[in-house]
Design a binder for these strands. Structure first.
Lengths: 142, 142
DNA sequence: CTAGGATCTAGAGCCAACTCTAGATCAAGC
DNA sequence: GCTTGATCTAGAGTTGGCTCTAGATCCTAG
């Protein structure tokens, strides 16, 4: 593993597009300013990959880029702002708790409905004489 | 509970804005076409509230409006398309499973980091002589 | 009659997060 | 020398989901 990577290599390893990598840099999402090669091309390090991996986890959980940028700034500034980092992380944790509840509420609902439709379709397949017009109540969330 | 509700009442009861209610209607998110009063004003029913509540659960779990619209169409069309409804619901369930994994990965990461920063801040508060420059490794997701 | 408040329509505006385009530069291989 | 492929910059375009505006209409209370 070389510690100097082109943008193409970083794209390949992270799964982010080259466009997105440049966009993230403009947005101040990179841990340290990107070094540049002779021709002005970006030179990434393994550290950058690690930082981007962290950012990708945060993004995958819907942390806004603005929050990631702020966190990045705080880390870049160094020691002394731990309280703000902590607050930022806790805020996102609150979001996560709430969102996990939303997802599992929806999961329950969908599991219920999937069950209903599976039964309905099984019946329809096994017994063609049954009343195929009999709809499950689909008006409500119950 | 009256079964004829103004858009304002629906907004109040669902928490959606009046603008959003009209927007959802344009987007074909309503279970049945809205009835209108003498002056052209929308008349909602309790059924509409129920359907909107369902939609809100789906939206809160990030189902795109396009998918909700499709599901709405299918339900409106009536019996005979259960397989497609089922497929649509299962697709969203896959999304939910994946997203729950994302959120809990992020939750683990954040819990870890929150722990680190809490310790750091506690130490800083309890013992001012300690090395406040000692940073936790914040470059990586670990 | 009039003022206030709720509603209507059509359509513009906004925000986040990409995503892509155009045109230039550069290094390597034939 | 020339083509090919990767990279560069600045900036425009896209998508999804709202959110708001303007100007009209209508109902009710004073």
């Amino acid at each position: 593993m070389p510690d100097i990577l082109s943008i193409g290599q970083v794209a390949e390893r992270t799964g982010l597009s080259i466009h997105t990598l440049r966009f993230y840099e403009r947005e101040g999402i990179l841990h340290s300013p990107v070094r540049r090669g002779a021709g002005g091309n970006r030179l990434y390090s393994e550290q950058d990959i690690e930082w981007l991996s962290l950012c990708m986890i945060l993004r995958a959980s819907d942390m806004p880029l603005a929050a990631i940028r702020r966190y990045t700034e705080l880390v870049r500034e160094g020691a002394g702002n731990e309280a703000e980092r902590l607050a930022l992380l806790r805020r996102h944790r609150e979001y996560l708790i709430n969102q996990m509840a939303n997802l599992s509420e929806c999961m329950d609902l969908i599991n219920y409905k999937v069950g209903v439709y599976e039964d309905l379709i099984d019946e329809g397949a096994a017994d063609h004489s049954c009343n195929r017009e009999a709809l499950p109540a689909d008006g409500g969330p119950g």
